[in-house]
Amino acid sequence: MASYFASLNFEALLRACPGGIAQGLIWGIMALGVYFTFRILDLADLSVDGSFATGGAVSIMLILNGWNPELTLIIAFIAGLLAGAITGFLHTKLGIPAILAGILTQIALYSINLNIMGKANQAINVGQTSLRITSNVDLIWRTILIMFIGVIILMGLLYRFLGIEIGCAFRATGNNDVMSRSLGINTDHMKLLGLALSNGLVAMSGGLLAQYQGFADVNMGRGAIVIGLAAVVIGEVICEAIYHRQVSYFHRLSFIVIGSIVYYLVYVLVLWLKFPANDMKLLTAVVVAIFLAVPYLKNKRTNSFRYAGNMAKKMENGGEE
């Protein structure tokens, strides 16, 4: 035990934190995409695992072909849009349940991603290219600053979107489908739009991560949905703990990104504590399950048959206590 603690190097933890923040910001964009479908549209979209890798693959391949790294992100976004639109098409036009439509797209994208890259992974020469988003230790704070500004701008755009007429119709669709249609909203189009937009964000995030780590891998999106969900639920819990009330969408979106950063800082901490890296996905799944279950269980405490039964027993025993 003593040797375990002696082996922990606090400076190493401090050195690892900036990387955690940078990754948190990158995944934050992914989480915003997940928020759009999972929370606003009330659909669990599993295609993101595929479109995340698509974004990475598109970005890396274009950089290898001499493109400007930032410009590749726009192409990655468009690729994600298309991927999401396919899920939307399968769901709304062909009547396939959303979860299944997402899985189908995800599987299809695996092959497509391999075709984009030609093999399972592709790397860029981090030294040669003019990357602004990089894990290079000397430039990490610049990366964080650029990501921070980029994320703020993106959140501003998304906030604006949720406030305009289309955005309101989009939110209404996820909230009450029947009402939305009775008010003339084409809910199928809204779902298609939301799924496309969500996957566009996810793919852009994938492109950023690929640039950050210097390579794209066909498996880089595996479990991405769970990390996105983790960021969403952690962000919501923190937001609720701080404000205890309704907050604006800008706050909510901010806390999704904060949730993502917290997730990655915890990730760094857990790795530093020498938790086996192979078990990280298990840990993430457990964390998400707990966070998703807490609201339900909280309600159960005072609203369950067991609780009612206990109350009834108390009555039998005189009920004074």
Binding site: G163, I164, E165, I166, C168, A169, R171, A172, N175, N176, M179, S180, L183, G184, I185
Partner: peptide, 24 residues
């Protein structure tokens, strides 16, 4: 729509059957 504000619900209704654009 239960999770939307009262005024947001009314705003949706005021635009019933209209094309929804990029105005607030």
């Amino acid at each position: 729509a239960p999770d939307m504000w009262l005024e947001e619900n009314l705003a949706l209704a005021l635009r019933r059957g209209q094309k929804r654009g990029i105005k607030w």
